[in-house]
Simulated assay, not measured.
Amino acid sequence: MMEKRVKAALVSVISNTFLVTAKLVVGFLIGSVSVISEGIHSANDLLASFIALFAVKSASKPPDEKHNFGHGKIENISGTIEGLLIFIAACLIIKEAIEKILHGGEPLALGWGIGVMGLSALVNLLVSSYLMRVAKATHSIALEADAIHLRTDVYTSAGVFAGLLLIHFTGWTMLDPIAAILVAMLIIRAAFELTSKAFVPLIDTALSEDEVSEIKAIIENYSDKFVEYHDLRTRRSGREKHIDFHLVAHSDSSIQEVHDLCDSIEDHIMREIPHSHVLIHCEPVCCCEGEEACQAADLTRSHA
């Protein structure tokens, strides 16, 4: 059965292929720079969708000898590239719009442009909502980036749709390149937000404050079975979340008891924090209270 993330990425590729063709054909036929700019934007979306498809397929691979912690960061790289592509698309749109303002030109057969923009907004609204649901369910940054990408297209298509309607009723053709420039401004904003969100985890940032608070609450739920914990560290790699900390066990606890305690804490964290990998280093209160406590000091438990 096809993996849920891969299926969602394929839906994005198919929908963007259709919209690129429709927008560019109609845009050139009616001579509308705002529709052509939307075609360029959708071509950018299509490339981004292919990148997202590659990313989710690659990120799903299990750890190997060269990638002991898996391939999760491929999704972050994908999101960063998508953000840069969006920015490039915005620059191309502005260039086309300025040339239209300087050299003039009048779009024809506005009905076709209005129709394709309305259809584009509707299709991308449905697809982006679907992608975001799958992204949240699977914790996929690549699909979330693609969803944000397409949601931007919803707003920009709706903007061009409104601009063409105004031209139809007012006859003021200058609204076409103005609408295109406004589209580009929205795209640049989306590019900045997306790039920031995707790039930051590449430098091993911690999990969110809410997630860290939840991890602490889970550990403290077992506080009657250990002395203390310290050196809690977290980092994100794509959808994968790595968590490690030191647990100070009672010196009279057996290795089996400490082992079972670690299992319980790890299982609990992994249930509440999906796609997490937990590493616990156990320490005794001191090593002068028996050989068994000293052995516990060297016990390191790891689960994925």
Rank of each mutant, 00 (worst) to 15 (best):
G113N: 03
W172V: 14
V160L: 08
M174C: 11
R189E: 04
I141V: 10
H168G: 07
R189C: 07
T138F: 06
P177K: 00
V200Y: 00
V123H: 10
Y155Q: 01
A190K: 13
I181R: 05
I188C: 02
L182G: 15
G111M: 03
L164M: 13
L110G: 04
A184M: 03
Y130A: 03
A137G: 07
H139K: 13
L110I: 05
T195L: 00
I141W: 00
S196K: 15
P201I: 00
L131Y: 11
T156K: 11
G105W: 08
G171N: 09
I101F: 05
A191K: 08
A158C: 08
N124E: 05
G171I: 10
H103N: 14
I114K: 10
L164K: 11
F169V: 15
L150G: 02
L202M: 02
T170A: 10
D146I: 15
T170P: 05
D176G: 09
L143Q: 10
M132W: 15
A147Q: 03
F199E: 01
H149D: 10
H139Q: 11
D146A: 14
I178K: 13
K197I: 00
R151I: 15
K136I: 15
L194S: 05
S140C: 03
F199N: 01
I114Q: 12
I141D: 00
I181H: 02
I148E: 09
I187H: 03
L150F: 13
A121T: 00
Y155H: 06
V154P: 02
K197N: 00
T170H: 13
L175C: 01
L119S: 01
L150E: 09
G159C: 08
T195P: 07
E106P: 02
V123R: 14
